[in-house]
Amino acid sequence: MARIVIADDDADIRELVVFKLRHGGHDVVPVGDGAAAVEACSAEKPDLVILDVMMPGMSGLDAARALRQDASMDGLPIIMLTARAQESDIEQGFEAGADDYIVKPFSPRELASRVSAVLARSR
């Protein structure tokens, strides 16, 4: 079981991810924007964070950069979950420090597999 922070401003997507990951036995902390994700990561010390790219206020890319600059979050795996599927967008995500990239619309099964794979790699 892992502790996972999920940040997405779309309540449906957030709840879908929470439902799927809780079903898989994970402890999930849902938040609605990038700033809240950074705060939740500081407070919860998660094993993984899933960030939507386009969010109000602090974007997922900015949140990923902030997490990468924080020494206490060293090695925290980041998965970007986004509707922006162009190659340049994916590149930007990896440059910001993402470990994996899932494009919306998404398959919940694929999400669960990617989460397992990223967690396995980080342990």
Binding site: K104, S107, P108, R109
Partner: peptide, 12 residues
């Protein structure tokens, strides 16, 4: 119908 645009694969 509101949920469909957010999913793909078997779930959809």
């Amino acid at each position: 119908f509101e949920m469909l645009p957010k999913l793909r694969g078997e779930s959809r």
